[in-house]
C-alpha cells in the first residue's frame, strides 16, 4: 500500500509537485496521468526515495520513506523513465547484481528464471545489454524492478519505446501483477491507463486535478446538454438550422467528416434536451443525421478538460477563435 500526504517538492520558487495526496491500496493498479512536465516522475522519484520531498509524507506499506528509507525501499521495485542499465554487463550478470544489491533471499536461480520467463527475456540472457534493442532494454529494466518480488511496483512510463505487440504484453503483465502487488504506473497515453488501471490520478502542473476510477471519471464529466452530430448537407445552412432550435446556445462546425458531411458541436442550456427538435427540423429540410451522440467525454477529452479547462482541446479552441475573428468579434 502506498499513501501520499500533502506532498510538495519545490525547486526554488517553482513547485514541481504541489500538495498532492492519494492512496493506492494493495492489489490496485493506480495510473498516474499527466502531460510531460506535470510532476509524474518527480512524484515517483520521491516515492522511491531517490529525491526527497520539500513538504509532506509518503508511506510505503506504512513506512515513511524519509524516516526509514532502507526498509521502505526494500518494499519497492522501481522502473525509472530511463531503465538504469549497465551496458557492459550481460542480462544475467545484471540481474544477479540487482539480486545481491537488493539483498534478495529468494532462491536465486529459480527466481531469476521465473522473472526472465515473465518478461520474456530467456532468449537474450547471455547477451550484453548494450547490444539489445530498445524493447528488450525496457524489459530488462522491468525485470530488474521485479527482482525480490517487491510488494510495491513503481513504473515510470513502462511501455515507452515498445512495439504494439510488446505493449499489449506488458499491459497484460501489469494487470496480472496488479492482482497481488500495489502498482503505480505513469503514462501520458490515455488508452493505456484506461486499459490497465483501476484508479486514475490526473496531475497537471504539479497538482492533482482528478482522482477517481476510470469509468466514473468519464461519467462525472459527461455533459448531456452537449451534442456531437454528423450531418450531411451544406454546413452554413445546417449551422443556422441548428442554431434556430429552442434552447440551443451555441453551434460550432467541426471537421469535415466526408464529402458534404460535417461534424457539429451543439451546446444547449443545461438540462435541456434538444435532440427531438433537432431531428424534426433537420428531417423537415431533408438533412440526414448520420450520427448524434451526447458528448460523453472520452478519457482524452476528460483529460483535456481537466488540464486545459476545455473539452474541445487546443485545436478546436483555435478553430473557435478563427470563427470569432471571421465574425469580427475578435479584432486581435
Amino acid at each position: 500500500m502506498i499513501e501520499v500526504r500533502h506532498l510538495t517538492k519545490s525547486y526554488g520558487p517553482k513547485k514541481a509537485v504541489n500538495d498532492i495526496s492519494f492512496t493506492a491500496e494493495d492489489g490496485q493498479v493506480l495510473g498516474f496521468l499527466g502531460p510531460n512536465g506535470a510532476g509524474k516522475s518527480t512524484t515517483m522519484n520521491i516515492l522511491t526515495g531517490y529525491i526527497s520531498s520539500t513538504e509532506g509524507q509518503a508511506f510505503i506499506n506504512g513506512v515513511d520513506i524519509l524516516e526509514d528509507p532502507i526498509k521502505a525501499k526494500s518494499f519497492i521495485g522501481y522502473l525509472p523513465e530511463q531503465p538504469p542499465l549497465y551496458f557492459d554487463m550481460t542480462v544475467d550478470e545484471y540481474l544477479s547484481f540487482v539480486y545481491s544489491l537488493k539483498k534478495c533471499r529468494l532462491p536465486k536461480k529459480s527466481h531469476l528464471n521465473e522473472i526472465c520467463d515473465i518478461v520474456k527475456l530467456t532468449d537474450v540472457r547471455k547477451r550484453l545489454i548494450k547490444n539489445l534493442s530498445k524493447g528488450y532494454k525496457q524489459r530488462v529494466g522491468f525485470a530488474q524492478a521485479l527482482v525480490g518480488n517487491p510488494k510495491v511496483l513503481i513504473l515510470d512510463e513502462p511501455t515507452v519505446g515498445l512495439d504494439p505487440k510488446q505493449i499489449i504484453e506488458i499491459r497484460t503483465l501489469i494487470k496480472r501483477l496488479g492482482r497481488n502487488h500495489t502498482v503505480i504506473l505513469s503514462s501520458h497515453i490515455l488508452p493505456e491507463v484506461q486499459a490497465v488501471c483501476d484508479r486514475i490520478v490526473v496531475i497537471n502542473k504539479g497538482r492533482i486535478v482528478a482522482n477517481d476510477n476510470a469509468d466514473s471519471l468519464a461519467r462525472n464529466l459527461s455533459a448531456d446538454h452537449k451534442l456531437v452530430l454528423h450531418i450531411e448537407g451544406g454546413s452554413e445552412e445546417v449551422k443556422k438550422l441548428l442554431g434556430s432550435v429552442t434552447d440551443v446556445e451555441r453551434v460550432f462546425v467541426g471537421r469535415q467528416v466526408d464529402e458534404r458531411v460535417w461534424e457539429y458541436h451543439v451546446e444547449a442550456k443545461e438540462g435541456a434536451d434538444v435532440r427531438r427538435e433537432i431531428f424534426r427540423k433537420l428531417a423537415a429540410r431533408n438533412y440526414p443525421i448520420l450520427l448524434m451522440r451526447s458528448n460523453e467525454l472520452s478519457l482524452e477529452e476528460v483529460f483535456l478538460k481537466l488540464t486545459t479547462g476545455d473539452e474541445y482541446g487546443g485545436a478546436e479552441k483555435l478553430e473557435r477563435k478563427f470563427d470569432r475573428i471571421e465574425k469580427g468579434e475578435d479584432k486581435k
Binding site: 532502507i70 525501499k73 519497492i76 522501481y78 525509472p80 538504469p84 549497465y86 540487482v98
Partner: peptide, 14 residues
C-alpha cells in the same frame, strides 16, 4: 550520466 544512480539510490542499501 547513465542514470544508473537511480538503481543504486533506490535500492535498500545505505
Amino acid at each position: 550520466k547513465q542514470r544508473t544512480d537511480q538503481l543504486l539510490l533506490t535500492a535498500p542499501v545505505g
